[in-house]
Amino acid sequence: MTSTATRPRGARARAAIAAKTLRTDRWWFAPLITVIGLSAWVAYATVRVFMHNNYWVPEHHYLTPFYSPCVTERCVEGAAHFGRFLPGWWIIPDAALTLPFLLLFRLTCYYYRKAYYRSFWLSPPACAVPDGHKEYGGETRFPLLGQNLHRYFFYAAAIISLINTWDAILAFHSPKGFGFGLGNIVLLVNVVMLWAYTISCHSCRHIIGGRLKHFSKHPVRYRAWTFVSALNVRHMQLAWVTLGTLALTDFYVMALAAGWFNDLRFIN
């Protein structure tokens, strides 16, 4: 074989380019927005969870998702659909059974991992922008090895979505009987979005059919996988939308419970 090309000769140095990045676009904008968005949400949620107030609207049976299921001794009786069996210390959230799992579900979510690795951990802050750390081991050792437990938090999140669905159904039955108002729509939209986010999870996609080698032998699971895959494409959008619907739903219930305004009622 005749070749006029120069052949590589063992180890060579990389191009000596002084600039850390030559990107000219606003690569810093997305991580900045992520930091602001996530920090604002976490701050709001923390305040609300430890407020222990204005989470239940007795006239319409609206319960905010931040307090569902309400299981501490300090819970209002009507809001405690599953009993009150935890002590009512202020440090214990009224939804202490579910909040840790929801937090871990989002913390280990494949989309949120991308979001906070880039924006908070700067590893890397953006594509072709240098990593903010000298050494990098990825998810190969503790504690980041724990990201592999995502599917268990998915199972927990699915159960919690069932509880939220039950809350939304109960909200149609107020002390005056069947009723329907703007609050019901807010709760329903929140639940639908929560289900969409939960089902679009990558672990769900794997469990429902992604792990199969032969789709042709499992046509039902293949169709389910196809449906989840279509949702999975929107997983990032759903992750942000659900943060918004959760905060909005909680705020709406808080405003009604505090008497800032009245619910817009369509029936009863």
């Binding site: 690795y117 990558h202 992604g210």
Partner: peptide
């Protein structure tokens, strides 16, 4: 295990292969 799902590979792929969502994450789940 080194991959931390920041999806830059998917962003730059000229063939628009969903490297992370359809390749790396399914392998991590497996």
């Amino acid at each position: 295990g080194f991959c931390n799902i920041t999806k830059c590979c998917t962003e730059v792929c000229p063939e628009h292969i969903k490297i992370t969502d359809n390749g790396i994450i399914p392998m991590k789940e497996r």
